Simulated scan of single mutants.
Amino acid sequence: MLKTRETRVEERKEEKRSEKRDRILRAAEAIFLDKGFHAASMNEIAEAANVSTPHLYNFYASKAALALAVQLKMGQETFDALKTAMSAGEKNPSCQSIFDSRRSSLMLTIAQSRDKRKD
């Protein structure tokens, strides 16, 4: 089936949006790991991701929503790295990053922040 021009345009837009979302998540993870959840600001995450702060809010409504997306991304990376290591049957260097204590600390901080909002 041939794709229409409109379909190709929409696919390119979605690809660019996905790339931008990935860039935001990478920037947020780096800043959260470096500064911690509470000290990080949406402004500096936007700057690191090379997007405007209002545009960042088009992707994530709040810092908590962004932190949850980072937490999900880190969880998926952990799962993928462990799955790869287990299938290789040997110690995999890519697994070393998942044992960075700052990742665990950040995940706990995010979980605690979510629990406090429920109270």
Rank of each mutant, 00 (worst) to 15 (best):
M1R: 08
L2G: 03
K3S: 12
T4L: 06
R5Q: 11
E6W: 06
E6N: 07
T7G: 06
R8M: 14
R8C: 12
R8E: 13
V9K: 13
E10Q: 11
E11W: 00
E11T: 06
E11N: 10
E11M: 10
R12T: 04
K13H: 06
K13R: 13
K13A: 04
E14I: 05
K16N: 01
R17K: 12
R17T: 07
R17M: 04
S18R: 09
K20S: 00
R21L: 04
R21E: 06
D22I: 03
R23W: 01
I24H: 02
R26S: 07
A27H: 00
A28K: 14
A28S: 13
A30N: 09
A30W: 05
A30P: 07
I31K: 09
I31M: 06
F32A: 02
F32M: 08
L33E: 01
D34A: 15
D34P: 07
D34W: 09
G36V: 08
F37V: 06
H38F: 14
H38T: 14
H38Q: 14
A39V: 10
A39K: 13
A39R: 12
S41H: 12
N43F: 07
E44R: 15
I45C: 03
A46T: 10
A46I: 12
A49L: 11
N50K: 10
S52T: 07
T53E: 05
P54R: 05
P54M: 03
P54W: 01
H55Y: 11
H55N: 05
L56V: 11
Y57P: 00
Y57M: 03
N58D: 00
N58M: 03
N58H: 04
A61Y: 01
S62A: 00
S62T: 03
K63P: 08
K63D: 08
A64R: 14
A64F: 10
A64N: 14
L66D: 02
A67N: 07
A67Q: 09
L68W: 04
A69R: 02
A69E: 02
V70S: 02
V70C: 11
Q71H: 14
Q71I: 12
L72M: 09
K73T: 13
K73E: 06
M74P: 02
Q76L: 15
Q76M: 14
Q76T: 15
Q76P: 03
E77S: 08
T78Y: 12
F79W: 06
D80Q: 14
A81C: 12
A81D: 11
A81N: 14
L82Q: 11
L82K: 14
K83C: 12
T84A: 11
A85N: 05
M86L: 15
S87P: 04
S87Q: 14
K91Y: 11
N92D: 13
N92F: 06
S94P: 00
C95L: 09
C95T: 11
Q96W: 12
S97W: 00
I98N: 05
I98R: 05
I98K: 02
F99S: 10
D100F: 05
S101C: 08
R102K: 10
R103C: 10
S104R: 15
S104I: 13
M107A: 04
L108K: 02
L108E: 01
L108I: 04
I110C: 08
Q112N: 10
Q112C: 07
S113N: 15
R114Y: 12
R114V: 13
K116C: 06
